[in-house]
């Protein structure tokens, strides 16, 4: 139920320019949570503690990923860009749902 509300909420808020703080916080939590994105395991993000160094720092996302589809693909299945990628295929292996990936992307675009 809660998920549905989040999804609905993110769909509604996708169009307007400013995303609500709540949605961004959801995205941030999903990105950082160890059982979810755990992106910090491999990327430095803002002031996140003890970042890993397997992947490049996640910053200036708007400038580097003007194409939202490309970013989605990188998170959904990094091996589609790089067959030997050491980034887990979050969507393909069902670590994150499509909705969760959307929320994470909303957050990433604030970086």
């Amino acid at each position: 139920m809660r998920n549905k509300i989040i999804v609905l909420f993110s769909l509604i808020t996708m169009a307007p320019l400013a995303l609500s703080e709540d949605v961004l916080k959801q995205g941030k939590n999903l990105a950082l949570e160890r059982g979810k994105g755990n992106c910090l395991a491999c990327h430095s993000i803002e002031d996140g503690q003890l970042p890993g160094s397997l992947g490049p720092p996640l910053l200036a996302m708007k400038a580097r990923f003007p194409d939202r589809e490309r970013l989605r693909l990188q998170i959904h299945d990094a091996s589609s860009n790089n067959r030997h990628s050491r980034m887990p295929p979050f969507g393909r292996h069902q670590i994150l749902t499509a909705e969760e990936i959307e929320l994470i992307m909303d957050y990433l675009y604030t970086l």
């Binding site: 910090l40 395991a41 491999c42 003890l50 970042p51 890993g52 160094s53 397997l54 030997h84 050491r86």
Partner: peptide, 8 residues
């Protein structure tokens, strides 16, 4: 390929 790097 990642030896020497950090995971967290």
């Amino acid at each position: 390929i990642s030896s020497g790097q950090y995971v967290r």
